[in-house]
Design a binder for these strands. Structure first.
Length: 421
RNA sequence: GGCAGGUUGCCCGAGCGGCCAAUGGGAGCGGACUGUAAAUCCGUCGGCUUAUGCCUUCGAAGGUUCGAAUCCUUCACCUGCCA
């Protein structure tokens, strides 16, 4: 049963940055199940935080009774959506195919593939690969005035530095996807990130021109920090969803460290907590910010969504062990070892324990020996929660916590373990 | 096409023959203060066996010089002005 106010729900959650006619869409939602699609290009082996917004939005819509088509861009991934930074380098067909599989695997757990409004996975490679150039230029290309394409922001920003015909044509492919899904599956809504807005409206226009039909598009906002910079960066790079590219512990830590100001906004976008629960947490954050109830709820919910409950528990107990402020020696080996393995650890043999500086480098806490020495000089290096002052200090047997572990920390937040075996 | 100017470290931007690994600001990193928040203040900010030492860096390649980011030549790209 479609709930009649899913659009209001999306608006309340701050998920609508741009849209075509909202009233028309609200009406469509009210009349029954709407078939909608959202696309993901395989440009990396894993999706990241930005994609998660789309995945969760798709799930919200499905839960409200609408029917998802999740598109993986086996074709568009071969071409590359133009971005301001410059021309992309092309990936091989094999690489793209492999990434398609991985991306599919990351989307599937979030959608329901059974029941009345079962989700469908589609790949635009299926209807693009065999398309003839003549047909493409006549049936699709004819509807795209170049003067309009040139006026698009991304394209304009690239005219100076240069843009290949390949990337320039990207929008045609994405628009064709929408047209195909409209024709073959009755899809009437596409959404995507706000950086996709131009591509979304291009599809809407194409369908209007070729089919005379009015279809819908909405764009979700770009997540930014309060200083306006982009969200979703960790020391290691993007906030990947793949646990082999970003550990669940690091993922959990990211959300736990979110600014107070952004907690409410992120809870709305990234959790399925109810309006009441979110308002309650937002109020707690305002009144008792030091409890960080909002951050904790956010971290737990998102990590559970992406990595499951067991990983969330592991990340939480690791954080508790490492940041709980308790005596490290008092922790059971299983807790401490687990925590350090979550946080990242290296192994050295008992006879060859290197100096603190070398350990900082080999655990990745410092980027070079110079950086490591600097850190020690600044008082930012800790061994077993005690500040290290001598960069050449070599930990001895007495320093081993539980006989096995050295707990190395840089600054307040970055911890790594050294397993001495 | 002609004339003038520019290309510096993650980014912006000084330097204009030795005192330059290169002023300053931003980002980053660390410390203090806090709450694994924000703001603020302080420090730090190419690499190496930490060294009055070496290596790599000032668009690219050559050259002049005891010595160049700084001068000359060629090339590439960018920006103004004139056609």
């Amino acid at each position: 049963m479609p709930t009649d106010n899913i659009l209001d729900e999306l608006e309340w959650r701050g998920l609508i940055a741009h849209s075509t006619d909202l009233d028309a869409l609200r009406e469509a939602f009210g009349q029954g199940a709407v078939r909608f699609y959202v696309g993901f290009d395989p440009t990396a082996p894993s999706l990241h935080m930005g994609h998660l917004v789309q995945i969760l939005t798709a799930r919200r819509l499905q839960q409200a009774g609408h029917t998802p088509y999740a598109l993986v861009g086996g074709a568009t991934g071969m071409i590359g959506d133009p971005k301001e930074a410059g021309e992309r380098s092309l990936n091989s067909l094999d690489t793209v195919k492999e990434w398609v599989q991985r991306v599919r695997g990351q989307i599937e757990p979030f959608l329901d593939f059974e029941g009345a409004n079962a989700a469908t996975m589609v790949n635009n490679y299926d209807w693009t690969a065999s398309l003839s150039t003549i047909d493409f230029l006549r049936d699709i290309g004819k509807h795209f005035p170049v003067n309009r394409m040139l006026a698009r922001d991304v394209v304009r920003s690239r005219l100076e530095a240069g843009i290949s015909y390949t990337e320039f044509s990207y929008v045609l492919l994405q628009s064709m996807d929408y047209l195909n899904l409209f024709r073959d599956h009755g899809v009437t809504l596409q959404f995507g990130g706000s950086d996709q807005w131009g591509n979304l409206t291009a599809g809407v226009d194409l369908i209007r021109r070729t089919e005379g039909a009015r279809v819908h598009a909405i764009a979700t906002p770009l997540m930014t920090k309060s200083d306006g910079t982009k969200y979703g960066k960790t020391e290691g790079g993007a906030l990947w969803l793949d646990p082999s590219m970003l550990s669940p512990y690091a993922f959990h830590q990211f959300w736990l460290n979110v600014e107070d100001e952004k907690v409410e906004e992120l809870l709305k976008v990234f959790t399925f907590l109810s309006r009441e629960e979110i308002e309650e947490l937002a109020q707690q954050t305002r009144e008792k910010p030091f409890l960080r109830a909002g951050q904790k709820a956010l971290a737990d919910h998102v990590t559970t969504l992406v990595h499951g409950e067991a990983e969330t528990e592991a990340a939480k107990s690791a954080a508790q062990a490492l940041f709980g402020g308790g005596d490290l020696a008092g922790l059971p080996e299983s807790t401490l070892g687990g925590a350090l393995r979550e946080a990242g650890s290296v192994r050295v043999s008992a006879g060859e324990v290197p100096s603190v500086v070398d350990l900082l480098v080999s655990t990745g806490l410092a980027s070079s020996k110079g950086d490591a020495r600097r850190t020690v000089g600044e008082g930012g290096a800790y061994l077993n929660n005690e500040r290290v002052t001598d960069p050449d200090l070599v930990p001895g047997p007495d320093d081993l916590v539980g006989g096995v572990w050295l707990v190395l920390r840089r600054g307040k937040k970055k911890v790594a373990g050294v397993e001495v075996a």
